[in-house]
Structures are given as structure tokens and as C-alpha cells.
């Protein structure tokens, strides 16, 4: 497939990431990173500083004493959450617009990506050290960025794709996208990743998260981790929109990720709880899921 010219134009117009987000992602990709490195980036960015302090002092975090220094705040939130806040701030046009092409409401893509990030990080712990959990988190946050650009060209195709898929006549939503638009959200996502100069492992996840066996061998386990994290998010009721659940699980995952049914259930519980806490700390409390 090649990306149609008008979609290429939209990709070229995607706002660049902030310096802070780029630096934080590269720090997190180094397994030996320190809290001090993360804090230094946050301190140089007043808006991000405000966000980190607001989140750490939110009732959802449940800390008794007020935290007023960035270093302490980061030691509570962890680097992952700081990356998430930085991306949410600078790529709000990607994550927060309603995506009509997916019948997805404002903020749904962000929530889906956040849940996927948390679940992918937990699943990466079952990779025998082959997928770095922190990188899996960042990759999970970014895996579906292509949807933000695909939404407009999809127009009202989603209903048709869903109807055909429900009859069992469409492999998955990716195939539907390709048929309707001539490209799909993983391919468009990869182009955005290149536009943003994202590092290789993240690009590979974005490109192959629905077909992990096609990923480069060195990153394949990481791609499988996010492939499974994506399913866990959808199974937990946190999909993007009309495409939710209309994807195929790659049954070869177990050659890369050794997770039992009981372990998966634990991941679902823990990821759900952490997701709820992060959402509440970012947006305030909402209707609690029982």
C-alpha cells in the first residue's frame, strides 16, 4: 500500500512534539535512567511542571502532605506518567479530538492509549527480559496515533466496515480501513512516527501492532507486548470507538510472551485500577466502575 497524497499532506501538517516529550522518551528508553534526569526535563518546562504537580497533589494520588518540588513529585508519579503528561500536553490534537471516522468521542483515543500503555508495560514483564516494560508503556501510548489522521478520510465508512465485519466477511478493521481509504492506521501512524523522528522500536510498534509477526526480529517481542496490551484495553471496555474488538489476536504471542490465564487476570485487575487512578488524577473523579 502507499499512502494517498491528501493523507500525506495531513501527516505533514501534524504539529511537532515538544522538546520535553522528545527528551523524556529518549531518557526512558535508557534502562539506566534516573529520576534526576526526568526531573531536570520537567523543571525546564513550566507548563509540564504545573501539570506534574497538579497530578501528584490530586486527591486520586492520596498523598497526605503537599508536594512542592519536581524531584519529589517525579519520585511519586514515576517517569512513565511524566512521559504521558508531556505527550498529552503537546499532542493534544492527536489524542483529544473527537474522531468521527471511528465514532469516537473526545478523549477516547487518549484513554485507550493510556490503558494500552499500562497493560503493555505489565505484559512486557512476562517477556523474559526481551521487551523493556518502560518502552512498552511509551509505545502503548503512541500505538494508535494513526487514527487521528485516518478519522477524516474514513468519513462514514466505519458503519459499513462494522456491518461487513459483523457478518464475518471482513478479516479485521485494518482490512476495512485499507479497503475504504487505501491505507490503514498502522501505516499512517508509522508515517507520523517518521514525521516526529521517533526511535526505531516505537516506530516498529506503531507499524505492526496488529500484525506483530511482521515486526523486525529485534523488536518483535516488544510489538507482541503492545499487541496484547491493546487487546487488554479493549477487553476492559476502553477501546477507541466503532473499531473496538474488531481485530485479530495473533495466536503466536505465546512464543514471545509467557503469560498464564491467572496472570492475565491479575494484569487486567491491576491495569484497570492504575488506569482509573491516572484518569482521576488527570481529569478529576468520575463515575466509578464497579
Amino acid at each position: 500500500m502507499a499512502i494517498p497524497p491528501d493523507i500525506k499532506d495531513s501527516i505533514a501538517k501534524v504539529k511537532p512534539l515538544s522538546q520535553s516529550a522528545v527528551r523524556l522518551m529518549s531518557i526512558m528508553a535508557d534502562p539506566d535512567h534516573t529520576v534526576a534526569q526526568i526531573a531536570a526535563v520537567v523543571e525546564s518546562d513550566p507548563i509540564l511542571t504545573g501539570n506534574v504537580l497538579r497530578v501528584v497533589n490530586s486527591p486520586a494520588f492520596g498523598l497526605r502532605a503537599k508536594i512542592s518540588t519536581v524531584a519529589r513529585a517525579v519520585s511519586y508519579t514515576g517517569g512513565n506518567m511524566v512521559v504521558g503528561l508531556a505527550l498529552h500536553l503537546c499532542a493534544s490534537g492527536i489524542f483529544n479530538n473527537p474522531l468521527d471516522g471511528y465514532e469516537s468521542q473526545r478523549g477516547s483515543l487518549w484513554r485507550h492509549c493510556l490503558f494500552t500503555a499500562i497493560a503493555s508495560r505489565e505484559i512486557a514483564r512476562f517477556s523474559g527480559g526481551k521487551a523493556d516494560p518502560e518502552v512498552a508503556y511509551t509505545a502503548g501510548l503512541l500505538h494508535d496515533i494513526g487514527k487521528a489522521v485516518m478519522s477524516a478520510p474514513l468519513g462514514d465508512s466505519a458503519r459499513k466496515i462494522v456491518a461487513i465485519a459483523d457478518k464475518g466477511e471482513m478479516r479485521d478493521f485494518v482490512a476495512g480501513e485499507a479497503k475504504a481509504v487505501g491505507t490503514d492506521h498502522p501505516e499512517v501512524g508509522e508515517a507520523i512516527a517518521m514525521h516526529w523522528s521517533l526511535p526505531g522500536p516505537l516506530r516498529e510498534v506503531i507499524r505492526h501492532h496488529h500484525a506483530p509477526s511482521k515486526a523486525k526480529e529485534e523488536y518483535r517481542t516488544l510489538v507482541y507486548a503492545v499487541h496484547l496490551g491493546d487487546f487488554i484495553a479493549m477487553m476492559s471496555g476502553t477501546g477507541t470507538g466503532a473499531d473496538t474488538m474488531l481485530y485479530l489476536l495473533d495466536h503466536d504471542y505465546r512464543n514471545f510472551i509467557d503469560v498464564s490465564a491467572a496472570e492475565l487476570e491479575k494484569v487486567i485487575l491491576d491495569a484497570g485500577q492504575e488506569y482509573q487512578q491516572v484518569v482521576e488524577s488527570m481529569f478529576g473523579s468520575e463515575e466509578e466502575m464497579q
Partner: peptide, 29 residues
């Protein structure tokens, strides 16, 4: 309920007592 995904909504209705109840089940055991 919110979106269910693989969760199951269990609904009970008693036409005599005219009351309903619903729960969002996440896992089997």
C-alpha cells in the same frame, strides 16, 4: 454500564417487587 468489552452485565429484575439490579462482572473467579 460503561462499555463492557469482555466484561458481562448481569441483570436481575423482579416483576413482583418492581425492582432491578445490575452488576458489571470483570472476571470469572
Amino acid at each position: 454500564t460503561l462499555a463492557l468489552g469482555s466484561c458481562v452485565a448481569l441483570i436481575m429484575m423482579d416483576p413482583k417487587a418492581r425492582c432491578i439490579a445490575m452488576v458489571h462482572v470483570v472476571l470469572p473467579e
